[in-house]
Computed example of a mutant assay.
Amino acid sequence: MLQTAAQALLKKQYFPKILNDLQSDLTLLAIKSALSPTAKKIYLDIFKGSYHYSTTGSGIAMVFAGMSGFGGN
Results as ranks from 00 to 15, higher is better:
residue 23 Q to A: 15
residue 24 S to F: 03
residue 24 S to Y: 04
residue 24 S to D: 10
residue 25 D to T: 04
residue 25 D to Y: 03
residue 25 D to S: 08
residue 26 L to K: 00
residue 26 L to C: 04
residue 26 L to M: 10
residue 26 L to H: 01
residue 26 L to E: 04
residue 26 L to V: 05
residue 27 T to W: 00
residue 27 T to D: 04
residue 27 T to Q: 08
residue 27 T to G: 00
residue 27 T to H: 07
residue 27 T to P: 00
residue 27 T to I: 00
residue 28 L to W: 01
residue 28 L to Y: 04
residue 29 L to I: 01
residue 29 L to S: 12
residue 29 L to Y: 13
residue 30 A to F: 10
residue 30 A to K: 11
residue 31 I to S: 08
residue 31 I to R: 12
residue 31 I to G: 05
residue 31 I to Y: 07
residue 31 I to C: 03
residue 32 K to W: 02
residue 32 K to Y: 09
residue 32 K to D: 13
residue 33 S to F: 09
residue 33 S to I: 07
residue 34 A to Q: 15
residue 34 A to V: 03
residue 34 A to P: 07
residue 34 A to W: 02
residue 34 A to Y: 03
residue 35 L to D: 06
residue 35 L to T: 10
residue 36 S to V: 02
residue 36 S to K: 01
residue 36 S to L: 01
residue 37 P to V: 09
residue 37 P to R: 07
residue 38 T to M: 07
residue 38 T to D: 11
residue 39 A to Q: 12
residue 39 A to K: 01
residue 40 K to N: 15
residue 40 K to H: 15
residue 40 K to V: 08
residue 42 I to V: 11
residue 42 I to M: 13
residue 42 I to Y: 04
residue 43 Y to R: 05
residue 43 Y to P: 00
residue 43 Y to A: 06
residue 44 L to D: 12
residue 44 L to E: 15
residue 44 L to Y: 05
residue 45 D to S: 14
residue 45 D to H: 06
residue 45 D to C: 09
residue 45 D to Q: 14
residue 45 D to K: 15
residue 45 D to V: 02
residue 45 D to P: 01
residue 46 I to M: 15
residue 47 F to W: 05
residue 47 F to V: 09
residue 47 F to Q: 11
residue 48 K to E: 13
residue 49 G to E: 12
residue 49 G to H: 13
residue 49 G to A: 12
residue 50 S to N: 14
residue 50 S to F: 09
residue 50 S to E: 13
residue 50 S to T: 08
residue 51 Y to W: 03
residue 51 Y to D: 03
residue 51 Y to Q: 05
residue 51 Y to I: 04
residue 52 H to D: 08
residue 52 H to S: 15
residue 53 Y to D: 14
residue 53 Y to P: 02
residue 53 Y to A: 14
residue 54 S to P: 09
residue 54 S to C: 12
residue 54 S to N: 15
residue 54 S to F: 07
residue 54 S to Y: 05
residue 54 S to W: 09
residue 55 T to I: 09
residue 56 T to Q: 07
residue 56 T to G: 05
residue 57 G to A: 08
residue 57 G to V: 02
residue 57 G to N: 10
residue 57 G to K: 06
residue 58 S to T: 11
residue 58 S to D: 13
residue 58 S to G: 08
residue 58 S to Q: 12
residue 59 G to Y: 11
residue 60 I to L: 15
residue 60 I to R: 00
residue 60 I to G: 03
residue 61 A to F: 05
residue 61 A to C: 06
residue 61 A to E: 11
residue 62 M to L: 10
residue 62 M to I: 10
residue 63 V to N: 02
residue 63 V to Y: 06
residue 63 V to H: 09
residue 64 F to T: 04
residue 64 F to L: 08
residue 64 F to P: 02
residue 64 F to C: 03
residue 65 A to R: 14
residue 65 A to H: 10
residue 66 G to H: 08
residue 67 M to H: 03
residue 67 M to R: 07
residue 68 S to N: 11
residue 68 S to A: 14
residue 68 S to L: 06
residue 68 S to T: 14
residue 69 G to F: 04
residue 69 G to R: 11
residue 70 F to L: 09
residue 71 G to E: 03
residue 71 G to C: 06
residue 71 G to P: 01
residue 71 G to V: 01
residue 72 G to P: 03
residue 73 N to H: 10
